[in-house]
Computed example of a mutant assay.
Amino acid sequence: MYINSKHRIFGLDIIRALAILLVLCSHSTLLLFPNQNNVYLTVTQFFGTVGVDLFFVLSGYLIGGILLKQINEGKVTVKDFLYFWVRRWFRTLPNYFLILILNILLFYFLHEKIIENIFYFFAFLQNFSSPHPGFFTEAWSLSIEEYAYIVGPLALLILMTFFKNCSKKTLYIVMSLVIIIIITFLRINYHTNHDIISHHDWSKHIRKVVIYRIDSIYYGFLAAFLAQVFHSAWNNYKKWFLVLGILLFIGLHSCVFLFNMQPENSQLFFNVFYLPLLSISLLLFFPFFSSWKTGGPFKNTITKISVLSYALYLINYSIVLLTIQNFISVEGTPLVIKFLILLLYWFLSFGLSYLLFKYFERPMTNLRDSSFFK
């Protein structure tokens, strides 16, 4: 698999590869121990959720950087923003719609049912303001990312239209902060009017709903601004930021563990503060990793995993894991059989993702660079 690494930042490839591997490890526990619950499984599954948050803040950091680059180059017309959206959509939508259609066909083949309100998935409305359905469950995070890509740049374009004399970078910050504040108030409103009865309930109604989560992307926007405007401090204090991020991450979850904090007994903390603090702790790692330009002996492997991460995320659960579970029961099977099932899951996930990337995703992303779209 040929990869043009000229413009890639190895440290960010590490973050992306780590994020998808955490997700795969988490899903592996669901495959092998679907009805079991212990501290080891809980920790592994927790880091899987952290992997998704890594994707959120990384997406915000990269997309925010692209918007800032457009601002610096004076590319702030409606045409420029349309070109920005076309490039993003050619990167994300073809894979999504292909896997969505495959999921619909696979679900019908296995269960002879058609999902109710399936058309919501084609507009990313399935979890816009309510819990995500039980079908194609990994799509919840894609809805959050897609709306974040639309809302922020559109708000920025509107601000620049009405405040032509203001600094474009100032308006970029205003846009990011206003969206973060609005989403925070929406979570406060939910907290005021609803009771959370379990961690699953919190995850379903808060963590996986668009209008309560897109602020995670915009924390990444703020980090992109800081990285550009305060470039010297971003690089000079990168190790200190890394240490601070580790301390915040460990401290945050140590409090959760030591004080037995759960969404049902610490609702204000989880509904309003936990997810932003998690995003900030992860972004504090970025000064260190965003300056990591070269790799060691595992560079090619890490870069390939990073490149396949989007395809892996789409394929590994609904397409591979649930299909395996439909035909193979792991309950009461010997450990060696479970190991073989695990190998099958990882082999199919990477193999199908490679095929998706090579024969569909990469041709689509190459098409966006054609002269027609420029």
Rank of each mutant, 00 (worst) to 15 (best):
K164V: 14
T294L: 10
G251Y: 10
R16Y: 00
R91L: 05
S216W: 02
L30S: 15
T92A: 09
E264A: 12
F185M: 04
N235I: 13
R91W: 06
I188K: 08
L348T: 01
V78N: 06
R87Y: 03
L22H: 08
S370E: 11
F136S: 00
Q325W: 05
R362E: 15
L343T: 03
I20L: 07
T333G: 01
I150S: 03
T184I: 04
A311P: 02
L283D: 15
T170K: 09
Y108H: 12
F163C: 01
I99S: 09
L247W: 00
V174W: 09
D13Y: 05
S371W: 10
W346P: 06
R88V: 02
Y172L: 06
Y149M: 03
K239R: 14
T161V: 08
N260L: 07
S143G: 07
N235R: 13
N127Y: 07
V210S: 09
Y96D: 04
T294G: 05
C255W: 14
R88N: 01
N236D: 15
I183K: 04
F360G: 02
C255L: 15
I341W: 08
N117C: 10
I319N: 06
F286S: 02
S141A: 10
L24M: 14
N4M: 01
H191K: 10
L340Y: 14
G65P: 14
L242A: 08
S353R: 03
P363W: 13
Y61E: 10
F47S: 04
T301Y: 14
S329G: 07
L18Q: 07
S254L: 12
D195N: 15
K299Q: 15
